[in-house]
Each structure stands twice: as C-alpha cells, then as structure tokens.
C-alpha cells in the first residue's frame, strides 16, 4: 500500500516561492511608491510568522491567547538587549531569542493546564499587561517607556538596511515559518493538538499527554512569536512599549479567525487580508467611509475590524481559507456546479 500524499499537486509551491522573491521587482516596475508597499508586506511577513504560531496554539489546540503582543515584545526586547548590549551576533540571536520566548510560553502554559476558554484569554491578557510593566520597570536595559533603538540585522557581514533588503530576509523566514508550522500541524503533534481542542477524552484515550502537549503548544507558539519579535525589532529599528498593546493581541486573534482557525494557509491569508486592509485599504477609503457614514474623525479601523470579525464569525466561520476551498470546488465542477454553493 502506498501513502496518499502522491495524489497532491504540489508544483504550485515552488512557483509561489519564486513569485514571492520576484514580487519586489514587479512592484518596483509598477509603481514609484514600491517602498511603501514593501514596508507593508514586511509588516505582513512578520505578522505571518507570529500568526501561524498563534494558529497552532489557538486554532489547533484551542487555547486562546490574548497575550501574543507580549510574546512579540519579549522577543523584540530580548534580541535588542542581546545584540546591542550583550554583544551577541544577530545570527545567534535569531536562535536564542525565540527559545527564550518559547520558555516564557512554557511558563504561561502552566495555567492553561487548569483553565480554558475565555478565562485563559483573560489570563494571557493579564500576562500582556505584566510584561509591559516589567519592560518599563527594567529601565537600565530597556530604557523604560521611552523606547529603544535597535541595530540593523547583520547576517554574515551583510547589513539589511532598507525595506528592500528586509523584504528578502523576512519573506525567507516567513516561508520557513509556514513550512515548519504546516509540517507540525500535519504530523502527530498537530493531530494531538486538534484532539485536545475537540475531545480531551479521545486525546487521552489515544495516548496524548494533555499537560505535555498543551505546554508544547505554548512553547512552539512562543518560538514563532519570538522569531517574529527578533525580526520586528531589528527591521523596524525602534521598539517601544506603545507597539505592544492589547489591541495588537486582539488583531492577531482576528487575523487567525478571519483566515480560518486551524489551517496554516488560513492564518497566512487572514494576516495578509487584515494587514493590507489596515495599511492600504483603510487609509485610502477613510475619507470616503467618513463621508458615507456622515461622521467626523472617529476610529474607522476598529469599527471596520469589529464588523469584519462579526460578519466572518456569523457567515463564514471557516474563514478565508474555507472560502477558497469552496471556490476551488466550484471551479473544478464548473459547468455542473450546484447553484448557491459559491462562497
């Protein structure tokens, strides 16, 4: 007997990867403001690294975390301190800092052994506040609330200075994160995670050590968030506690939910969708929306995100990825498709 993977068509993956690396050149050709678009894509790339990890935790394992901005913060500050104050090369920090954040995740995993659902969300949210306070308290290293300047990323003597350089660095790691998280999700670990979410009894009866795997989920998720933090700190060159507020954690959860929980591609799509909406669509459309709703100023962003979240949970709980799967079936069956099955 042979496995079933051979049926899958995987040729699009290398094409996509080549496309990702060619994208900046295309953008440069298309528009003079390509640098801004690259900056937005870099932001999305960093967030993708974090949200695929968050998806493993909240989507797969069902442990809601509202503290992922704090993980990002720990990763950023750890790397900034290690590289600029301790003097460790950036390349090593790329490995060490995520591990440290993973350990923090491990510690936060302890309460998750006893509490779940909204209560866990609140606990992790509290963790977010504590981290922010601690960063302010450790003034000698973090310069308090004033923010910290961070050096450029240097890999083997090459300094990544512009958004153009950063794009290649970040997208390489984003691809790596997606591949690794997908492999985790499809292996025995991913199956155990999903079993914990849907039926702890079935998981235990199948030999899954609940405590171990819940901690593992936090650990892995912490590693991804830590990696995102390292890249965030060094590519944005300045970090301060104002970056990492509770709203950011909520945005991460929205990204995962909008994309479709418990699918890695969903997290990627959701992140891209929200980031592009946030940085490109909303600033363009803001004036128009304000005129349409006849309001002055106001927080259009939050309004829009709340609305999107609401609509997705009610009408499209499987998220963007689910939408895509349905669309694909629709096109496959094209002339014979049953009506009203689109989207």
């Amino acid at each position: 007997m042979k496995g079933r993977y051979e049926d899958e068509n995987l040729t699009w993956i290398p094409i996509l990867i080549v496309g990702i690396f060619l994208l900046p050149f295309v953008l440069k050709g298309l528009t003079y403001s390509y640098k801004y678009y690259l900056f937005v894509l870099n932001m999305a790339g960093i967030y993708i690294i974090l949200t695929v990890g968050l998806d493993l935790l909240s989507g797969y394992t069902g442990l809601i975390s509202l503290g992922h901005a704090a993980f990002l913060a720990i990763g950023s500050y750890t790397s900034a301190i290690l590289v600029d104050q301790v003097g460790i090369p950036f390349v090593f920090s790329l490995f060490i800092s995520p591990l440290i954040v993973g350990l923090f995740g491990f510690i936060i995993g302890f309460p998750a052994l006893r509490i779940t659902g909204m209560y866990l969300g609140l606990t992790t949210m509290g963790f977010g506040f504590i981290v922010k306070r601690l960063i302010i308290a450790f003034r000698e290293w973090t310069q308090g609330a004033g923010g910290l300047e961070v050096s450029f990323p240097i890999i083997f003597g090459y300094t990544f200075k512009s958004d153009w350089d950063n794009y290649f660095l970040i997208s390489a790691f984003a691809i790596l994160a997606v591949v690794v998280s997908r492999r985790i999700g499809k292996s025995k670990i991913g199956r155990a995670f999903m079993a914990i979410r849907d039926s702890e009894q079935a998981a235990e009866a199948s030999g899954v050590n609940l405590a171990k795997y819940k901690m593992l989920a936090f650990f892995i998720s912490g590693i991804f968030a830590g990696l995102a933090g390292v890249l965030f700190a060094h590519t944005s060159h300045f970090i301060s506690t104002d970056h990492f507020d509770i709203l950011l954690s909520i945005y991460f959860i929205i990204m995962v939910l909008v994309g479709g929980a418990s699918s890695i591609y969903g997290a990627v799509l959701g992140t891209l969708f929200i980031v592009l909406l946030d940085y490109l669509f909303v600033p363009e459309m803001k004036g128009w929306i304000q005129e349409f709703l006849n309001i002055e100023g106001g927080d259009i962003q939050s309004l829009l995100f709340g609305l999107i979240m609401f609509l997705f949970i009610i009408f499209q709980p499987t998220g963007l990825y689910g939408m895509w799967l349905k669309m694909r079936i629709y096109w496959k069956l094209f002339p014979f498709n049953p009506k009203k099955k689109f989207i």
Binding site: K188, A192, S199, A205, S262
Partner: peptide, 27 residues
C-alpha cells in the same frame, strides 16, 4: 484502547488523520 458511547471524533480533521490520532504512541 477504547471507543466512546457518544462519538468523540475530531470534525475538522480527515478520516485518515482521525484514525492516525490513535497511532499516537506508535510514532
């Protein structure tokens, strides 16, 4: 190993993955 009175499957996994969950300790 055991089965449950009210089925305890994982809805958003394929049938094959659901079964492989049971092979957890063999891997």
């Amino acid at each position: 190993s055991r089965t449950f009175q009210n089925v305890q499957n994982i809805p958003f996994m394929t049938v094959l993955d659901n079964i492989l969950l049971g092979a957890h300790h063999r891997i």
